[in-house]
């Protein structure tokens, strides 16, 4: 949930509303916020499934250190979404191991 009004910070400076897709679904967020924040505000918790145990992972450190929140952004895997700014038209995909769901499923059939 977004915080509309904060007792100390007031309102948050947000950029333009931007459109992006997550696994093909249309989403909206604000320019300048992190991809992770936009997804979190939309209730998306799972950013990827791990390579070995195939377990879901999401935001953990949110400052670019732990690399748990990585996703495929515009075709690039392992992008740290917590420190990558959201931009209009971004194509974001849940990461499976280091690949897309399709590539992962094709390999693990």
């Amino acid at each position: 949930m977004r915080i509309a009004q904060h007792p100390i910070l007031g309102t948050y400076e947000k950029g333009q509303k931007v459109h992006f897709t997550l696994d093909g679904q249309d989403m909206v967020g604000y320019e300048g916020e992190s991809i992770a924040a936009a997804l979190h505000a939309a209730g998306v918790m799972t950013h990827r499934y791990t390579a070995k145990q195939h377990k879901p992972r999401g935001i953990f450190c949110a400052i670019g250190r732990c690399t748990d929140c990585v996703m495929i952004v515009d075709g690039q895997p392992n992008v740290r979404t917590c420190i990558t700014e959201l931009k209009e038209g971004m194509n974001i995909q849940t990461q499976y191991g280091v690949e897309t769901k399709e590539a992962w499923e094709a390999k693990n059939k």
């Binding site: 791990t50 390579a51 145990q53 953990f60 732990c66 748990d68």
Partner: peptide, 8 residues
């Protein structure tokens, strides 16, 4: 229990 998250 997982200890190293990156490499599971």
């Amino acid at each position: 229990m997982i200890v190293c998250r990156c490499e599971e």
